[in-house]
Design a protein around this nucleic acid. Structure first.
Lengths: 352, 352
DNA sequence: TATTTTTACGCAACCGGTTGCGTAATTTTT
DNA sequence: AAAAATTACGCAACCGGTTGCGTAAAAATA
């Protein structure tokens, strides 16, 4: 009946029923050329024997794994978690599996992971680039072999793939204009590494908003870091100790913004009266901090869905050369950290 | 040179070099029986041709995937993310891959995922059970085929595996004693489903601490929910509107505890003077809420490492029948949400 | 120089499903 | 009743590496 230590195969079922492995395989897959009766009995015996398909074998033969690979910097971020949920939601509806790997924002890890996922022959790859990454050769195998590759959120022009992202420039612009509308005239920016599109875009939006409104650009008010809690605190400390400190801060993420609020409050600044602060991402912490943080919201779940749909589309129709970019909307979520009395003239709706 | 559309295989390399595929395979794996010269030239040609190993084929032949499967309720939780980091950290050191899947706390998803991971022939499985799960047959295939299976944090006695967990009873006991030490005499508990060990243990610890200190047990003060933010708020609303409301709350997680603080503050209660609150997990939000939340810390990263080490150990020596449980220490992290003046007699160190 | 050992490699089976093609048996058509 | 079509299944190759066993050539030993 059941072999010594090895798991049950279709050969075991075939032997039991005195049919060929071919028939068993077809019966289990509801192939039309197998009679209903045979199909029923095969399935019955399979269940009785505790048969579990070996998808390694199946994948090899079919050269198809029904798997989407995902590389993200870190899963422990609300934005990323929502993104993944979106991917899984779409994938599971089409019976695709999702393999999630973290690059931990390390280039080396990203390279290793990309190679590993290629070796696993995933049917598509969705990637949000690591902070460190500046070369993109590790994705070459996917491109050469026409395996659908989609960049999400953290994208790079050097990597010629379909993209799903937000308009970071517009979002940075909106955020800054919001601070201006709230009466800020000396606005600082907590930014990230400028080789990463999301931070470059946000900062450019910030600069362009200042320009548009005729506000001077002061380079001392632009601080770059990894935007961790710790660095957010240090940056804020630096800013508030300037001879001419800012009256508003636009942070490129929520962690640093929350730290800014904490540091400011702790040192006697009133938020938003003395210092208005706006973040980015709409993480849960933004509505826990006091005052609650005004921020920019991402449609993370939708980004995941769209990216996965793109992959699935290519499964059926093959990869198209022309790469397309989907740009999703962001929104200013106004909360207490920027809500303050302003002169009538400074009040105006921020445009789309 | 390179075939039409298909990816390069060892056969292509073999043909190019006029050697056998066997030699190529061995050379690529640094097999001793291949001359250094041949090895070098094989690797050189492999690189030049852009060869990428097909691990699907390799896995099939070797009946080994070098992969650890992980099933968790939801990756978007600080505790889980740390757990996974611990697993990946250990796994990657031994060249193992990690496949992460989410059950979304759904029994159905957990079953599907377990089957899928078994079909993928992972070399081991680490699972933290879904909230809904009450049957464990979906892990039978792993047990029968001696594939190492480790339960982490959310474990079940019905599932006879190695376990890595904390002593939830002791932690709940400590948490409650801490509130008592802070002068609370009417302590409520925000608990979770009692069929899940972590919530049952914490609640039992709570009850036993009350008993030990001669405090009456009032069933109206024990509220069960899924401990989401929303439910935490509802539960707190109910508690604070009781004719005889509590003066302390022990919440089985931080989300609900944070909601409790928010609701209490919003309704004119002073935390911790009127109401002391202690949470569980030491999530980042616990140090952002004001007052900062006293909570119980988990060694999540270590739990992941230990679980992965256990899996790796079995790879070399085979699965042992005797299942062992590793119990890790927890700690009370005292912050402002419980720090209040108490009478001298009530002050005492909480024991280990 | 003859014999033994070592080196370096190839043959062919194998891992466990999948699939194009062929065919005996049964059913339908004329 | 003979011919054509359909049904239900098996054969054998295949996916791409891996591995036990065998062996010719080179090196070491006698």
């Amino acid at each position: 009946m059941k072999k010594n230590n090895k798991s049950i195969t279709i050969y075991d079922i075939a032997e039991e029923l005195k049919v060929s492995p071919t028939t068993v395989s077809r019966a289990l897959n509801d192939h039309q050329s197998i009679s209903e009766e045979t199909t029923r009995s095969v399935k019955k015996v399979a269940r009785k024997m505790g048969y579990r398909p070996n998808s390694v074998a199946s994948n090899l033969r079919k050269s198809k794994t029904n798997t989407i690979g995902v590389i993200v910097p870190l899963i422990n971020r609300p934005f990323i978690a929502s993104l993944i949920s979106g991917i899984e939601d779409t994938a599971s509806q089409s019976d695709y599996n999702v393999i999630i790997s973290q690059s931990y924002d390390s280039y080396k890890k990203e390279v290793a992971t990309a190679h590993s996922l290629y070796s696993s022959r995933v049917d598509g790859l969705i990637v949000s680039l690591a902070m460190e990454t500046r070369k993109y050769d590790h994705f070459q195998a996917f491109l050469e072999n026409k395996i659908p590759l989609i960049s999400v959120d953290r994208i790079a022009p050097e990597l010629e793939t379909d993209c799903v992202a937000i308009d970071n420039h517009a979002a940075g612009f909106k955020a800054t204009e919001h601070l201006i509308a709230m009466g800020c005239r000396r606005i600082a920016h907590l930014g990230g590494a400028q080789h990463r599109n999301i931070y470059r875009g946000r900062q450019q939006g910030y600069l362009d908003a200042l320009k548009k409104h005729g506000l001077p650009i002061d380079e001392r008010l632009v601080v770059h870091s990894k935007l961790s809690m710790e660095e957010g605190k240090e940056s804020t400390k630096y800013l508030l100790n300037l001879p001419n400190p800012p009256d508003g801060i636009f942070s490129a993420n929520d962690s640093a913004a929350v730290s800014a609020i904490q540091y400011a409050k702790h040192n006697g600044w009133h938020v938003p009266q003395d210092l208005a602060i706006i973040g980015f991402n709409d993480d849960p912490i933004s509505s826990i901090i006091e005052p609650q943080l005004t921020t920019i919201s991402h449609p993370a779940f939708d980004m995941g869905k769209i990216a996965a749909q793109q992959i699935l589309r290519y499964q059926d129709y093959g990869h198209v050369v022309q790469s397309q970019t989907t740009v999703l909307k962001t929104e200013v979520i106004v909360r207490a950290s920027t809500r303050r009395n302003v002169t009538a003239s400074a009040t105006h709706r921020n445009s789309a």
